[in-house]
Amino acid sequence: AEDTGVRVELAEEDHGRKSTIALRLWVEDPKKLKGKPKDNGAIEFTFDLERETPDDVAQEMIDSGFFHESDMKIVAKSIRDRVALIQWRRERIWPVLQ
């Protein structure tokens, strides 16, 4: 995946059974963002693979003041890339469950 400067990782082990997963997001390289992020914290949140989109979460992070509006796309892309990887991995490791 492209290096967006925003890192997203699983916050818990994925067993492929739940549609909701816990993710953790943090800024690795603030210079890649247009606006100034709120702080240096890691933001943990849950994401429903079946019902939600990365854009929804990115917008909520902006609404909550974590990121500037101009960074909506970069945050959404970072989440989207990680979610795509999780789904790809699920399909390979647990195809029967999917």
Binding site: W26, E28, G41, A42, T46, E60, M61, D63, S64
Partner: peptide, 27 residues
């Protein structure tokens, strides 16, 4: 460690914790 919780009006909960130094990229 200090945790901050932010709840968006749509109901999603964000829990903010400090990033360990080892996870931050050196500039």
């Amino acid at each position: 460690s200090s945790l901050t919780q932010v709840v968006h009006s749509a109901g999603r909960r964000f829990i903010v914790s400090p990033v360990p130094e080892s996870r931050l990229r050196e500039s």
